[in-house]
Amino acid sequence: MSASVLDLRNLSVRFTTPDGDVAAVSELSLSVGKGECLGIVGESGSGKSQTFLAAMGLLAHNGHAVGEAIFGGVNLVAADESTLNGLRGDKLAMIFQDPMTSLTPHMKVGHQLTEVLVRHRNLKSTAARDRAIAMLRRVQIPEPERRFEMYPHELSGGLRQRVMIAMALLCGPELIIADEPTTALDVTIQAQILDLIRRAKEELGTAVILITHDLGVVAGMADRVAVMYAGRIVELGDVHQIFNAPQHPYTKGLLACTPRLDDATASALVTIPGQPPNLQRLPKGCAYHPRCQNVMDRCRAEKPPLMSAGGGGLKACFLENFGRFQAGAVVP
């Protein structure tokens, strides 16, 4: 891994709500290398989106981030709106989950693309138009000239997500944050969209952060994977290690929930028993302990820090040599 593109250091995100504060992300540190694809996985509510929305300066009004998110020498968390606006859409791009609602309904697709180029590249409208249409062609949108003049509702979900990707790629960003880019799409379309993102990464050398709750998506795409639980990273490692020798009981649980093509007996209906944690009142010690099958006395009292898991990976768990257990062996 060469120099990093984005460095999160002790990033925390809290939301103020009428019934108390929500600790969505807690003291999270993470870095993404140049041209790397980092997968972020975890159950719904584990803080995946808010971590990176905080880095983009796009938190909801009641959200507040502290810590650092260093991008190109700038701490995005402390940066003012105009600094952020200079980076967003140019060097730093984001693709959102729901292509149905993520494009402005009353603006033509073309205008929504060209405004990025006008904003960051100062292009005149004809030049911007040419660039935008070329980009639509590049993301394999058929008849790009015609699509350019259409409104978002006239496109299918898959085409809209292609438009979103084209929009993200327009200025040749150093980092693309893709937040569940395929969750809302059909399975066949999903594969095409992932392929586009992979090609952008390979051809343009763009670093990609791929947020998903679907480990299957991460398997074919990511170089490294960070597993999040209750606003923290519980395991971070090389994609092969995460899949073949998970070091954290939660990662193992997630894997057990993922249907595998090579295992016909696995059922998609398996879920990790127990409730996801309440972020307003996190359990003492390891946040996963109420659901952990390997829980020890120590886990209820002490919070496990991120420590070396061997093989260059990190884990937040007190268990030793957990990876050596077979999946069946840990079940009491």
């Binding site: 796009l58 980076l87 993520s102 405004e115 904003r119 929009m167």
Partner: peptide, 25 residues
């Protein structure tokens, strides 16, 4: 709306986000 977040993620100045993307709806 989600598309306002998209517009902000493009780096558009706030004035444009409001007038161009939000005002009509």
């Amino acid at each position: 709306a989600n598309y306002i977040r998209t517009a902000r993620a493009k780096g558009l100045p706030f004035r444009l986000v409001v007038l161009r993307h939000a005002l009509k709806s």
